[in-house]
């Protein structure tokens, strides 16, 4: 690692601490100050004041909010994310980790498909620029991006499961044919975005001298496009791929809900509605932490891939 890189990385990480701190305070207070707490949800119709008192004491909700916060942070520092009240007395990590794993596998498959389609589509559109094929290609993928998942899901479920009977609908684990529809619904809308970025990147590479040189040498057009243009145009895509990675662990709320996939998207909706304080906080902090890490990793990858990029220097103070 270059000397500047280490300092830059540390500065970036240090910046994240106060902001994450503020966010944890805001979310913590917002949850506790709203009327209706997890105890109401646990007891529901059988609510009795005495029992509620006992439960509040057990989970510590009877104490002032700032004391609860300090306790929470103390536990967090020891890696304890707290206790779920919706899944009674499982720890928050026991609840979220298996579900995050389910969502991550599905999200990862979708991510691969998105980029595997988006990159060639973008190169194609860039090479076809000036003709009607360029806007037509991008627009037709943009159409998929415009359809919300909760509209798309009933349409494809009806067509492929009820009408054509090609696939089943129930959840049977991540690696079954029943996952084809969810994965496609997750991946195809993203293609337009990747294709647009790739197209712009290719166009900016096209004017480089080394492309003219490659053509002047008499290389085959195919070679020029693949090894000279596409390879160099892929460099800015590192950011895009890197920033998409933390997102896949967040799960896909609507798709999971409508296909009955026990992923973290579904759990976060249920946790918010219950409410399940510690699980919500764990999810927010986990997501934010991953994002910060992804940013740092991207910067490091860049400086390894392209030594010309001097971190910090180009970004001002």
């Amino acid at each position: 690692m270059a000397p500047g890189l280490l300092g830059y990385t540390i500065r970036r990480l240090l910046w994240a601490i106060p902001v994450l701190f503020v966010i944890s305070v805001i979310v913590f207070y917002m949850l506790r100050l709203a009327p209706g707490d997890p105890v109401d949800a646990i007891l529901a119709k059988n609510y009795q004041e005495e029992q509620a008192q006992i439960l509040r004491k057990k989970y510590g909700y009877d104490q002032p909010v700032h004391i609860q916060y300090i306790k929470y942070m103390n536990n967090l520092a020891r890696g304890d994310l707290g206790i779920s009240t919706r899944h009674r007395d499982f720890t928050a990590s026991e609840v979220i980790l298996p579900k995050i794993w389910v969502s991550t596998q599905i999200g990862f498959m979708a991510l691969i498909i998105t980029f595997a389609l988006g990159i060639p589509v973008g190169v194609y559109a860039a090479m076809a620029r000036g003709t009607f094929l360029d806007p037509l290609t991008i627009s037709s993928w943009l159409a998929l991006d415009a359809i919300p998942a909760f509209v798309m899901v009933p349409l494809v479920q009806w067509l492929f499961a009820l009408k054509l009977g090609i696939v089943g609908l129930g959840y049977q684990g991540v690696w079954s044919s029943h996952m084809i529809l969810p994965v496609l619904i997750l991946s195809l809308p993203g293609v337009a975005g990747v294709a647009r970025l790739m197209r712009a990147s290719v166009i900016s590479v096209l004017n480089e001298d080394y492309i003219r040189t490659a053509r002047a040498k008499g290389l085959k057009e195919q070679t020029v496009v693949i090894t000279h243009i596409t390879r160099n145009a892929l460099l800015p895509m590192i950011t895009v791929i890197g920033l998409s990675l933390p997102g896949i662990t967040a799960g896909a709320l609507f798709v999971e809900q409508l296909f009955g996939i026990p992923g973290i998207g579904q759990e976060s909706l249920a946790a918010v509605l219950a409410p399940d304080f510690d699980v919500i906080l764990a999810l927010v902090l986990f997501g934010s932490f991953l994002f910060v890490m992804a940013n740092v990793v991207i910067d490091i990858v860049y400086s390894v891939v392209d030594p010309r990029i001097r971190l910090g220097a180009a970004r001002g103070s």
Binding site: A16, L20, S268, V272, L283, V284, G287, S288, V292
Partner: peptide, 9 residues
């Protein structure tokens, strides 16, 4: 950092 938060949750 705000942009990196899990917005939907």
């Amino acid at each position: 950092v705000l942009g990196g938060l899990p917005t939907l949750i």
